[in-house]
Design a protein around this nucleic acid. Structure first.
Length: 432
DNA sequence: TCTGGGGTCCTAGGACCC
DNA sequence: TCTGGGGTCCTAGGACCC
């Protein structure tokens, strides 16, 4: 394998990755300081498995990939505090963190609920480590959320820098890797499996060719990596060499697909219950569709059994093309419930129903049809009223009868904390 | 014996992210 | 008893065209 050493690094804008530490756990702690220093986990939907762990929980051996019932001994032994996920609370904290970050640079890409890339062009005259520390301190002071900051010439290396910063006590949560000498030290000690966009399949491939560290990967030939891993591999190698291939996205792009699918809280067999649940998912996804300013020209419905069960498996999807794009919940429900009849088979225990809206178009320029007369204006007003009521009085306050009243199938959230910041009736009680 | 070649478009599935 | 959900991008392969 020949190696192409880049002989100089191009002049590029430094980019920081600000990453919240154990984000969901940290949110839970802000209003519940008694949790400080204790092992703490937040569970996935349906209280299935941990999706966020405090450092203390990691230390006592709580594993992310294992279901909660397999962890109950550890939980009891170490008095691990357990919470269902409370996305309303986390979403609100995310907004606060992002707003704080925007005080530090006009160039912010909100990459996920707990991470942002920050363009640092024009800050080169400053000590970037100091700037990062100031950012970290301010975010903690204003929101109560601890973060790690990694700074580097490319996003891929900024990710690496923030991960190292999180773990190494010496860095105090901030690491600047813009200096090539430090890059070499860091990449040589960094496992390829921990590189951004290098998942299990790619790391297995790389390791089978004795490419074990990020430094090994950086020095691989572009021809080789293109052949073995295609464009994404090539981008990874270039980014590790300090050549940006993944630009900052300052404007959130329009979504290409908006969907909803959750596991049932218990066994579901009847078409009636599946239709109710599907209608409820449609209503949920349609809110996000309208919020994104889009309408759907098609949808896909999937019906699935539990892959972990030994029973007969059945997974089927069906596509529906709509004659006219729409964002109106009632109409979407009618199309979907009709379609699901075609894939439903009786006598099967189902685990999940899922809907994806696709063929999305801006909802203010829906193509009209000569043959289908609809009062679009009326629909728009109806949906605006629906969304307004639910925003003011809580999601699901106003809903379609098709979604059901009992909702016996609904997702479990046994250990949810109060929605401290978004519900008047769940405000923090200081003294009872 | 022996059955073209080059292009486009679409979809399903894989891999990955948090 | 009990194993998440919402996304993106890329690729291979089939269908179709001339």
């Amino acid at each position: 394998m020949e190696s192409e050493q880049p002989n100089r690094q191009p002049r590029v804008e430094p980019v920081a990755l600000v990453d919240c530490n154990n984000f969901y756990c940290s949110c839970e702690r802000v209003f519940n300081p008694k949790l400080t220093g204790k092992p703490l986990i937040v569970l996935s939907n349906n209280d299935g498995m941990p999706i966020s762990r405090s450092e203390e929980a990691k230390a006592v051996g709580i594993d992310m990939a294992r279901p909660i019932f397999e962890l109950k001994d550890i939980i009891a032994k170490y008095d691990v505090q357990v919470f269902s996920s409370n996305y309303t609370l986390y979403g609100d904290f995310s907004r606060r963190v992002m707003q704080t970050i925007r005080q530090f640079s006009p160039k912010v890409e909100e990459y996920s609920i707990d991470e942002a890339f920050v363009g640092l062009q024009g800050f080169a005259h400053r000590n970037l480590t100091e700037y990062g520390r100031e950012m970290k301190a301010t975010i903690y002071q204003w929101t109560g959320i601890p973060v790690s900051v990694g700074i580097a010439p490319t996003k891929t290396m900024a990710k690496i820098a923030s991960k190292i910063a999180k773990k190494s006590p010496k860095s105090k949560g901030v690491l600047d890797l813009t200096n090539p000498r430090f890059q070499e030290i860091a990449l040589k000690r960094y496992d390829v499996a921990d590189i951004w966009k290098c998942g299990p399949a790619r790391s297995r491939l790389l390791k089978s060719h004795s490419i074990n560290t990020a430094w090994d990967l950086r020095n691989v030939s572009l021809a080789w990596v293109d052949k073995k891993m295609g464009v994404e591999g090539t981008r990874m190698v270039k980014e590790l060499r300090g050549e940006p291939c993944i630009p900052l996205e300052l404007m959130a792009p329009k979504k290409k697909r908006i969907g909803c699918g959750r596991s049932f809280g218990r066994k579901v067999e009847s078409l009636f219950e599946i239709k109710e649940c599907l209608a409820s998912h449609i209503a949920d996804a349609a809110v996000r569709l309208r919020r994104d300013g889009q309408a759907a020209t098609g949808m896909k419905i999937y019906l699935q059994t539990n892959p972990y069960s030994n029973g007969p498996q059945y997974n089927k999807g069906i596509g529906v093309e709509l004659p006219l794009a729409t964002d109106e919940t009632g109409e979407l429900i009618r199309w979907a419930t009709k379609a699901v009849e075609q894939i439903y088979k009786p006598g099967i225990v189902y685990k999940r129903v899922h809907v994806d809206f696709d063929g999305l178009v801006p909802n203010n320029q829906i193509q009209q049809s000569l043959f289908i007369q609809k009062d679009r204006q009326k629909q728009v007003q109806l949906m605006a009223a629906l969304d307004q009521v639910n925003r003011n009085f809580g999601m699901g306050r106003l809903r379609y009868l098709a979604e059901g009243l009992e909702k016996a199938w609904k997702t479990r959230f046994e250990y949810r904390s109060p929605r401290y910041t978004t519900r008047w009736d769940e405000l923090l009680t200081v003294r009872a």
